[in-house]
Simulated scan of single mutants.
Amino acid sequence: MCNRYQQAAIQEAKDALNAIIETPFNVGSDIIHPQSPGLVVKRVNGQRVLANMTWGFPLILAEARERAKAKGVQVKPKPVNNARTDKLATGFWSRWTDPAHRCLIPVHAYAEAAGQKGQMTEAWMTMPDDSLFAVAGIWRPSAEWGDCYSMIMTEAAGEAATVHSRMPVILAIADHTSWLEHEMPEAVKLCRGWEGALTVNRTETLWSSK
């Protein structure tokens, strides 16, 4: 499951995804981790809008709530940054799968941990002929982190399957509008493994949480 990615540059994302900026914002790091701010494109009044949101839906498990209460401290939500395609119809996700809450995530590269446990290194996936690609996402408002988003994951295909069993849903340019506008279950048909060209760059950088 994807736990870090390199986002596209803001001007590049605007141009490639035909978006505007309604409210100015500051862009953080290029490498996005769960609970970090990242770029997304959503639809507002028929217009594609580039926004900055927190990566991950905040989730507070009952056990964590009880532990925090016993210690007299404030409970910290866990960022749920990946949404599995086969779980989108379940209660946790289904409230946020309508077109108004779908988004495109402009990505330059995404990473997975490769190798044996304890010795895992970063493997980065990119498009060989494009500096940007769009990943399917959903977003929602939250009391904890403001607007936030989660990345749709599906069964891996092609070169990505040599690194991990799952991968982000990479959308072809022709499918961007369909993901943002079509109703379920038509939109979920787009949530399949990418079988086009994908370059895997296996590095010697050890995988760590940050």
Rank of each mutant, 00 (worst) to 15 (best):
E144H: 12
E22W: 05
Q6D: 09
Q119H: 12
W139S: 08
K78L: 11
A174Y: 04
A64F: 08
L132F: 01
P58A: 13
S36Y: 12
V80P: 01
R192A: 12
R84H: 06
V169T: 04
S29H: 09
E63W: 09
I173E: 12
N201P: 08
P168M: 11
E144V: 06
F92M: 15
R166E: 05
R95C: 01
P141D: 15
E159N: 12
D130R: 15
A13H: 07
K117T: 11
P77I: 03
Y5P: 01
C2G: 03
P24Y: 05
V27H: 11
T199G: 04
Y149D: 04
V73Q: 00
A123C: 09
V40A: 11
M120N: 12
S36E: 13
H176E: 00
K210H: 06
I138D: 06
N81C: 11
L88A: 02
N52A: 11
V163A: 09
Y110W: 15
I32P: 00
D130Y: 04
P128K: 09
T162M: 11
E159A: 13
A8D: 02
D15C: 08
P58V: 10
G137V: 11
E195F: 07
W139M: 09
R166F: 04
S94K: 15
T126F: 02
L180A: 01
G46M: 15
Q7G: 06
N18P: 02
R202S: 07
G72K: 06
T23I: 12
E66A: 09
A172F: 02
K76C: 07
A13N: 04
N82C: 13
D129T: 04
R43P: 00
A161D: 07
C103Y: 07
A161N: 08
V73G: 00
F133L: 06
S131I: 03
I60H: 15
E195H: 13
M125W: 03
G158D: 03
T199N: 14
V73H: 00
W124A: 07
M125R: 05
T90M: 12
E63T: 12
S29W: 03
A68F: 00
I173K: 15
G118P: 00
I60E: 14
A70W: 07
A114D: 09
G146F: 09
N3M: 10
L17S: 00
L50W: 00
I31M: 11
A111N: 02
K87E: 07
G158V: 03
